[in-house]
Design a protein around this nucleic acid. Structure first.
Lengths: 152, 152
DNA sequence: ATCCAATTGCAAATGATTCGCAATAAGACT
DNA sequence: AGTCTTATTGCGAATCATTTGCAATTGGAT
């Protein structure tokens, strides 16, 4: 729990076969739509909305409702991480095997460009915050916003 | 910009008349609905959703659409601050005159209890993050989540 | 008291996400 | 390979937060 920020999210692109094996190992069926979704996520190592995933898919490959259901499944199994940039659409990124995917982003408020951030909120302070108020299992969501070089 | 975290958001309940004066000073009309909304926010020094504001209002006092429009206005004029706990509904808090309202919360993931947090992401690190990627005017959104004493 | 633009109420539109249900297809087991 | 069982899908309708068009209303300056 404490090492969350030190643990690098490797971002080495995982093999599709590795991803489907993970699914199978969790006794979930590896269906056409699920494989296709994982492939899109693999090819775009950036936070993607459900609609962007749909648009990245060969047409007719998968229904939008199925993407929403799949993202829930993948999130629950820890294979993807959900992010929220506050624009009303959830975004998803693949999580490396054995990692927890916790990290943050710097988002351009004009062109929506996204940069992945290595820094994290100091673990000791988070711990102190939880302790101060008697909260357990404290995590945080943190995203940075600003104007990218092209936009200012 | 740097002192953001040091500046205490006083939370001394502002007078309603002070609030309406501020509105008038910004050459906005002080209408019935707006005064009523400000009064609800005044009496509940916690992040409130638009629906919660509506429910806190005398019945028939104001239409939900008007609340949405008012929250935009109040946000633009800096009188309220918008927060996002990731549950799909925006929440609003009054901002003291001359303050920027920047702060964070610790939210119980089971009972939704909210505690206001004094700590903030270290300004120097934020600055370095922006500089590293050539971003300007960098801010952040940060919320903490955990289980409150009653819920664990 | 009057007038005009800002503001409101209402109902319909949007956009993201969820759900019900019948049809379909993975994976297990012959 | 063929069959069976159940998870999964597609489709369309429902939901939820939020926005918008438009005609009716009302602050506040004159």
């Amino acid at each position: 729990m404490k090492q969350r920020c030190a643990r690098t999210h490797s971002h080495q692109r995982q093999e599709l076969s590795a991803l489907t094996s993970r699914l199978r190992g969790l006794s979930r069926k590896v269906t056409g739509p699920r494989a296709a979704i994982l492939e899109v996520l693999r090819q775009h190592p950036h936070p993607l909305t459900s609609r962007e995933i749909l648009d990245g898919l060969p047409p007719g490959q998968c229904n939008l409702a199925t993407i929403y259901r799949s993202m829930h499944l993948l999130e629950q199994t820890g294979m993807v991480k959900r992010f929220d940039f506050g624009d009303g659409a959830a975004r998803f990124e693949l999580v490396g095997e054995g990692e927890d995917g916790h990290h943050h982003h710097l988002v351009c408020t004009r062109c929506a460009q996204v940069v992945e951030i290595g820094e994290c909120f100091p673990a000791e302070i988070e711990q102190r915050i939880g302790a101060t108020h008697g909260f357990k299992a404290v995590t945080h969501k943190l995203e940075f916003f600003g104007l990218c070089p092209e936009c200012h």
